[in-house]
Design a protein around this nucleic acid. Structure first.
Length: 522
DNA sequence: AAAAAAC
């Protein structure tokens, strides 16, 4: 159906056309007429099918420019999503001259207060900062006509619910309430309807919860193989843009550093970073300055980055809903994508539970072989080799070039160039996956507790070193066990110092870029 | 149980 058939006014239709939209998606087609008519709506549809415009267009339609009050509030679970949603509403409301403001934590509140003084008709925000503005009386919600919970099941979850209730207490009882998400567990829906009046639940009948546009794989790995398995798959698949999801902020931090140390253009994104850093990393990803974004579930929901080709669940998501949202970062707006979920042997049952929710089987994928990883690197390198050759400053190279030409065959020269560009003769070349690799210890670190380094797969843990070619240096792990059994504090200290010293020296002497570890201790 | 979200 065309947008022009949905009862929207010309200003809005013009903005839609400028935005490049022509046909309404099913969720837009079904919910826009209801929302325009003032009904409360629960809108549920697959990720990447235009839910923001689905609630945004009727809101913009209803905005009264002569009314100086905030008329609509949209609440988002993350700052990045709030920014993105506000940006989209600004674009769609541009022709109508609608004033949209956004408020979220971690950024200068004075500037937000200035923005709020400009009489926005629409306010988008994250819960904490929104409440802050309410308490400061810098945001007055007494005239709100429409309240939207974006990613509604997340907003109604414990952890957010108190804030949401506090915000709802500030908006009029007589209002329109809209809940939008790709997932809506029944228990959460029951909480949501308590805040609604005679809601209509529009659920787009898709056979599966996830889109067919995403090809879904899983890889069975042991904890100590995870990191190398990831790098090999990255080498083979050569994602244009890929998101790697980790379970905790710490793991994301270390995995990001680890990939970077191995030569990937990667960076971590998680809630312990400053907002400035969060924005910077996301911008780098959007501009392809980096092509691997390593993230916690802060990036699981709603983020709409063009050209995300791959999603990697380095750690299997905490709940099946999270899986749906994570892989929904790819395969958006008609594009195709690939997802790979890493599954530990004891997580196989849980994988099946995810498949029950998505109603879709994942395809088993063998971890790539060393040869495949090398070949993948070479193929990826081919893409960047042409400009390298054509832009080579041959005139500045004296007779060195002709010397090489007389010395080597064209095949040898090309192979050398390819190996260099592919990084195959570098320290970050693909390596044999070590099944015997002991888990690393924190550099110069002390251990708290003791607990087995091995066999706590339940924590999903395992430490990962990029390499252990000459694994001899790691006999210390076994020693540690002995030491602990002795329970001798003095010797323990001594042993720590010795083994850490050994390892750092060893590593920095050899392959310093492999120094990172991914710990399993939280 | 983790992450997110205010200072």
């Amino acid at each position: 159906m065309k947008f022009s058939e949905l009862g929207l006014s010309q200003d809005i239709l013009d903005a839609i056309a400028e935005h490049g939209y022509v046909e309404a998606t099913p969720i837009q087609e079904k919910t826009i007429p209801l929302t325009l008519a003032g009904r409360d709506v629960i809108g549920q549809a697959q990720t990447g099918t235009g839910k923001t415009a689905a609630f945004g267009l009727p809101i913009l339609e209803h905005i009264d420019l002569d009314n100086p009050n905030i008329q609509a509030v949209v609440i988002s679970p993350t700052r990045e999503l709030a920014i993105q949603t506000a940006d989209e509403l600004k674009k769609l409301g541009h022709d109508k001259h609608v004033n949209v403001q956004v408020v979220f934590g971690g950024s200068d509140i004075r500037r937000q207060i200035q923005g709020l003084k400009s009489h926005p008709q629409i306010l988008v925000g994250t819960p904490g900062r929104l409440l802050d503005h309410i308490k400061r009386h810098t945001a007055k919600l007494g005239h709100v006509k429409t309240l939207v919970l974006d990613e509604a099941d997340e907003m109604l979850n414990m952890g957010f619910l108190d804030d949401i209730e506090a915000i709802i207490a500030e908006v009029p009882d007589q209002r329109q309430t809209l809940l939008f998400s790709a997932t809506m567990p029944p228990a959460i829906k029951r909480i949501g309807v308590q805040f609604m009046t005679n809601p209509e639940h529009i659920q787009i009948e898709a056979k599966e919860l996830t889109t067919d546009l995403v090809e879904q794989f899983f890889v069975r790995v042991r904890p100590q193989e995870k990191f190398d398995a990831l790098t090999r798959i990255l080498d083979v698949q050569g994602p244009k843009l890929g998101i790697v999801f980790g379970r905790t902020k710490r793991r994301v931090e270390e995995l990001g550093r680890g990939l970077e140390a191995r030569g990937y253009k990667a960076a971590g994104l998680h809630g312990d970073l400053t907002q400035q850093m969060r924005s910077r990393v996301l911008d780098q990803f959007k501009s392809h300055e980096i092509n691997i974004l390593v993230a916690t579930d802060v990036a699981a929901r709603g983020l709409d980055v063009k050209d995300v080709t791959h999603v990697y669940n380095y750690d299997i998501p905490q709940d099946p809903e999270s899986y749906v949202h994570r892989i929904g970062r790819t395969g958006r707006a008609g594009a195709t994508g690939t997802s790979v979920t890493f599954v530990l042997p004891n997580e196989m049952d849980y994988l099946r539970a995810i498949e029950e929710l998505t109603k879709k089987r994942m395809t088993p994928l063998q971890p790539a072989t060393l040869a495949e990883a090398r070949m993948g690197r070479i193929k990826n390198a081919l893409g960047s080799i042409k400009p390298l050759i054509e832009k080579a400053p041959i005139d500045d190279m004296g007779d060195e070039v002709s010397k090489l030409v007389s010395q080597y065959t064209p095949e040898q020269l090309a192979a050398g160039l390819l190996a260099q560009v592919a990084g195959l003769d570098q320290q970050n070349a693909p390596v044999e996956i070590s099944r015997e690799r002991p888990l690393p210890r924190r550099k110069g670190g002390h251990r708290n507790g003791g607990g087995g380094y091995r066999g706590n797969g339940r924590r999903g843990g395992g430490g990962y070193r990029g390499n252990n070619r000459n694994g001899g240096g790691y006999r210390g792990n076994g020693r540690r066990g002995d030491r602990d059994r002795r329970g001798n504090g003095e010797r323990r200290g001594n042993g720590d110092r010795r083994s850490n010293g050994d390892h750092s020296n060893h590593r920095s002497g050899g392959s310093s870029r492999r120094e990172f570890t991914v710990r399993n201790k939280d």
